[in-house]
């Protein structure tokens, strides 16, 4: 009887430990997601500055301008890393437009405003990259932990699900002003 009670107590302690570790790993992951979200929003906050810098060289149609402004709005409504990826793709197509405009107008590319913007954007991109790497490292750590047997059984009982990595498409790596 004593042994059975001891086994039950040890099992309960183990389950509590496993649950707490899973929770702590998931919280770290969520924190890093919030940080990623913050720097991504900082990136979208720069959109009005970019539009301001290039608007003298290219008149945006009303619909295009609305789409650009919507990037910022949709960034606020993101709930998962997949949503963030979609917003990021829209942003990339906008930046592709800006690059195309700057290639056409060398005076824009050499202008002080554009150069300053370039510096700020590069720095923000570096911060995003750091936040993304941190988030993905936590995702990997958490996903690996909850995949181990028998931890995967506890994970499904307690409702711990796998998270997606925040991927960056190959074009985005080159997408710098």
């Amino acid at each position: 009887m004593k042994y059975i009670i001891a086994i039950i107590i040890i099992s309960i302690v183990l389950i509590i430990l496993i649950y707490n570790t899973m929770l702590s790993k998931r919280n770290k992951l969520k924190n890093s997601y919030s940080s990623l979200d913050v720097v991504l929003k900082r990136r979208y906050d720069l959109i009005p500055n970019i539009v301001e810098t290039v608007k003298a060289y290219s008149k945006y149609e009303k619909s295009t301008l609305e789409n650009i402004i919507n990037i910022r709005k949709s960034a606020d409504e993101c709930k998962s890393s997949k949503d963030l990826e979609n917003v990021s793709n829209n942003y990339n197509s906008f930046i592709s437009d800006v690059i195309a405009i700057s290639e056409k107008y060398p005076e824009l590319k050499a202008g002080e405003n554009y150069l300053n913007l370039q510096k700020v954007l590069f720095d923000v991109e570096e911060q995003i990259s750091a936040a993304r790497r941190t988030y993905n490292a936590h995702v990997q750590n958490y996903n690996t932990y909850i995949s181990f047997f028998p931890l995967n059984i506890f994970a499904s009982i307690f409702g711990f699900k796998k998270y997606d990595f925040f991927e960056i498409n190959e074009n985005e790596k080159e997408m710098k002003l």
Binding site: S32, E126, Q127, S129, A130, R133, T134
Partner: peptide
């Protein structure tokens, strides 16, 4: 600060 470490150590 883990993010800052990765920001520097690219």
């Amino acid at each position: 600060n883990e993010i800052q470490a990765r920001y520097i150590l690219t």
